[in-house]
Nucleic acid binder design. Structure first.
Lengths: 138, 138
DNA sequence: CGGCATCCCCTGAGATACTG
DNA sequence: CAGTATCTCAGGGGATGCCG
């Protein structure tokens, strides 16, 4: 019997998406890769606050899930470039929705409250980004 | 000086949204509340696998963040109803995007792979939902 | 019914040091 | 440069029991 397989169409789509994105880091990596391919060190800089460990681990899992491609240029020193696969790129509307809602929310909220809720409660400057990234996601 | 406040418009909108939704539970709760107000016990049943602790905690935080309203009917036995606030309801496009992508992904993926990735790897039946919920999110 | 309060475990994630 | 390898710890989250 294939109860197991028949259960597949009872899986919650919402939960599947979340599961693939799991940690916040992956979403932030997606956000940055949507602007184009990036090297490991680029990502390390643009995904502010991420550790090498989490960056490596996240990228590895995302590659295993088919969300990103990993391309190694055989040079010295080594150069590794990450880019979105077609599957990964198809997540654009999701990232866009997250970004859109966040922008609206930030605009209509009390700045002092936002500061209190997101600048202090959250460790360090983890949520800050370079302003030029604003234009990347539309 | 108000460096602090001026930093507010450097916060990543994407990250803000994720931060408010944080755990997967909140997203699943949102998903179910989008279909209409629900009692605590309804949510306990529909958000499969959630513990009382996490349900209570999630709802409390979501209420504090202004995403859900809590209404107590002074009866015996007590009855508490949760519903989305306007702010919470405005997240519909986000939940919709997550759901939409997940549905597409499930359809085009190899069922055996999906089973392996989401039915076994993930603890218990946590990701399963009642099929009738599929129509709730459009 | 709709919660709290505890205890406890596991892992997500940071810090640091080392390598091809 | 792009990682790997350890060590460590806070807290996310489960299980259980009690309460108005």
């Amino acid at each position: 019997m294939n109860d197991a397989l028949s259960n597949v169409n009872k899986i919650c789509p919402c939960a599947v998406t979340i599961s693939l994105l799991s940690s916040k880091w992956k979403i932030l990596i997606m956000r940055d890769l949507l602007a184009g391919p990036k090297r490991y060190s680029d990502l390390k800089r643009s995904v502010m606050g991420i550790s090498q460990k989490m960056l490596t681990q996240s990228l590895k899992e995302m590659a295993a899930d088919g969300l990103v491609n990993r391309h190694v240029y055989p040079e010295v020193p080594p150069c590794v470039e990450y880019s979105l696969s077609n599957l990964g790129a198809s997540l654009r509307p999701v990232i866009y929705a997250l970004n859109k809602w966040g922008k609206d929310y930030l605009q209509k909220s009390n700045p002092a409250y936002i500061h209190e809720r997101f600048n202090i409660a959250v460790p360090k400057n983890r949520w800050l980004i370079n302003s030029e990234r604003f234009s990347n996601i539309r």
